[in-house]
Amino acid sequence: MNVLEIKNLTKKFGDFIAVDNMSLTVAEGEIFGFLGANGAGKSTTINMIAGLLRSNDGTISILGKNNAKQSRFAKMNIGMVPQDIAIYEDMTAYENVKFFAGLYGLRGAELNERVVEALEFVGLQDKHKSYPKSFSGGMKRRLNIACAIAHRPKLIIMDEPTVGIDPQSRNYILTSVRKLNEMGCTIIYTSHYMEEVEEICSKIAIIDHGKIIAEGTKEQLKSIITNTKDVWIEVKTTEKVNLAAIQDINGVEAVSVDENFIKINSDTGVNNLNKILEHFMNSHIEIRSLQEKAPNLETVFLTLTGRNLRDQ
């Protein structure tokens, strides 16, 4: 079943069209990435899914039920990790999670159990009695996540959960996202960090100016631009290189020599790097360096929109 189904969603703020006739489905078990520059409409879309904003047009369904008509059902099944850290500084970590989980109808021993579980999940069990005032940015982000997962939602929406934190906390969060996914949660993940999205998302939508301009797995997205990658091998001398032999390796489309570089253009769908290297080894050619120039999501975004992801 599709966890999320969006049809012709539109949101306007005055003259500004933030989300423009967007349609989208997210299947169960996916980590669905929204990739886009700031102001592309990611947060607006997410806020409409979570029920924070009303749409001007279109429908959103959660687990097959219309969001507008059965908002309670939708909200019960969604865990929202907002972009800004949304916790109470004057309550302890434990109290924060407990308060928010309590809003989802959890009570008594079950509530307590879930709160402890959530805090353990984000690795804050030792700090449960501390106030967030004393927390680092990364710990606050983790608490921010804990507050959204204690009620065990089917769909977790994470809006830029790694903004402004140290690499360690970031890795921790990315690992937790994967763990949540393994536990059966479907996750919507927005970021303007291309690497993160590329790393954890099973499916990605590139959003620009309120529209989905491309959608699919990262391989599918990359193949929009090209099916080939460039492998540049720097050698000591190009004398002994047999270009024809390299050309014959499965997947190789073109080979050329540029000073000390052997530039091989090869199909991304074929794993032939081993064979290419084998060829050089067997011919006793000394390799000085090797660069692989495969398109990444950043290139995809740049090529499609003509702008960088982090442009304003």
Binding site: N47, A50, G51, L52, S71, R72, K75, M76, I78, M80, P82, D84, I85, A86, I87, Y88, E89, F100, L103, Y104, G105, C147, A148
Partner: peptide, 13 residues
């Protein structure tokens, strides 16, 4: 201001 409003609205309350 604390942005917790979003959380409250996102909850079924």
């Amino acid at each position: 201001v604390r942005k917790t409003a979003d959380r409250l609205i996102a909850s079924p309350v």
